[in-house]
């Protein structure tokens, strides 16, 4: 394996105090993506520090409700880091209810908005965030719209489409 994959493995193992499995994929152009599921939520902060030591850049944070989230009572957050062109994804598995993650802002300044967005769109508490205000959502909208699994017509205005089509089809009948 390359220096990069060796270094990442060593750094993560050092941070977690145990061997952490990273699955590396190399695409047709030779670009590496590494996928790693952290053993617990507490492992996130030391792992993020280890990535920062390797001069990693926080690229993106993806919170999501995985397949059968309700059944399993689990949710996941994927933290994607850039390592000079390679992408390392660290995934933390959290409980569906009362999920909490530590803020990575002390390590990565640009995590600020990513975490503000995560907090308003999902039901996740980010512990230690310096500025937990809403970012994009209007104050009149309910909290955490992404938690509601589709469809939820009382919340979205899915009725708009139907109302418009009723007018189109009514106009058509007048025409005929």
């Amino acid at each position: 394996m390359t220096d990069l994959t060796t270094n990442v493995a060593a750094a993560l193992a050092m941070a977690a105090g145990e061997e952490i499995n990273v699955l590396w994929r190399r695409d047709r152009k030779g670009v590496l993506t590494g996928w790693c599921r952290l053993p617990c939520g507490e492992a996130l902060l030391p792992a993020a520090r280890a990535v920062a030591e390797l001069e990693g850049r926080l690229a993106m944070v993806t919170p999501y409700l995985p397949e059968r989230a309700k059944e399993k009572g689990e949710r996941e957050i994927a933290y994607h880091f850039d390592l000079d062109g390679a992408t390392l994804t660290l995934t933390v598995v959290l409980p569906l209810e009362w999920a909490r993650v530590p803020s990575l802002t002390p390590i990565f300044r640009n995590c600020d908005w990513q975490e503000r967005e995560l907090m308003e769109l999902y039901d996740v508490q980010v512990v230690g965030h310096p500025d937990p205000r809403r970012l994009f959502l209007d104050h009149t909208l309910p909290h955490a719209p992404f938690e509601r699994l589709v469809p939820y017509s009382t919340f979205t205005n899915a009725a708009t489409g139907k109302a418009l089509w009723d007018k189109v089809l009514a106009g058509e009948r007048e025409d005929a």
Binding site: A59, T62, Y64, P66, R109
Partner: peptide, 15 residues
């Protein structure tokens, strides 16, 4: 898609 997330380059420039 179960999830489709993207991060645009402008996102960090505001800061």
């Amino acid at each position: 898609p179960v999830r489709l997330k993207w991060r645009v380059p402008s996102y960090m420039n505001w800061d």
